[in-house]
């Protein structure tokens, strides 16, 4: 949508500039259609040049604004991806791994700068172990991730947790690759928006 609006704005600027350069319509003198005389060339006076300059400046500012907006949107998208990035766990464990710790640290800064943001952490398990134990294991994983965030200053009321056990695998299959992808905690934004990347 933004791209469409920016395009429309630039088109309007160009249209204004062109119309500013046009002279008043002259009296039409009937000519002999057989002579084919070229019309007199238009000239751009100072007012016309000023108008073009203003239009160019306006266009440049709009382009810069669009670029900034794109950069900001990309930053917000990156921040959103950071907040919702999945973290993974070892087999039958709920301890935060070192790679998960850095991922959680990245989430921390965004949560701090966006106090209206609320999230839900869902804990998951691979298919090994009983379904019911995996409910508990998923709960421990979600709680472990929440504890890391709250221990680092995020209000617990902003973080809901839930366990889906092994009921919602991210990857099918019964091999280590699938199991590793399924031992995880997922993060979902449930309220608020990221306004500060």
């Amino acid at each position: 949508m933004n791209r469409i609006h920016r395009g429309m704005a630039l088109a309007m600027v160009a249209a204004v500039a062109v119309s500013a350069c046009k002279k008043k319509p002259e009296t039409v003198v009937p000519t002999n259609p057989t002579t084919n005389t070229p019309p007199p060339a238009e000239t751009c006076n100072a007012a016309c040049r000023d108008s073009i300059s203003r239009a160019n400046a306006l266009r440049d500012s709009l382009v810069r604004a669009a670029e900034l907006e794109r950069a900001r949107a990309a930053a917000l998208e990156a921040a959103r991806n950071t907040v919702t990035a999945t973290i993974y766990f070892e087999y039958d464990a709920s301890d935060i791994r070192s790679d998960a710790r850095s991922a959680l640290d990245s989430k921390l800064s965004i949560l701090r700068s966006n106090p209206g943001l609320q999230i839900r952490i869902s804990g998951h398990a691979d298919e090994r172990g009983s379904d019911q134990y995996n409910d508990a294991l998923g709960q421990r994983r979600a709680a472990s991730a929440r504890r890391y965030l709250t221990d680092n200053g995020i209000d617990a009321s902003r973080i809901a947790i839930v366990s889906y056990g092994e009921q919602r695998p991210a990857m099918g299959g019964s091999d280590e690759n699938a199991w590793a992808r399924n031992r995880r905690a997922e993060f979902e934004i449930t309220a608020g928006t990221i306004s500060t990347p």
Partner: peptide, 9 residues
Amino acid sequence: YAHGLDNGT
């Protein structure tokens, strides 16, 4: 039944 929240089940 089994119940858990933040600190095990």
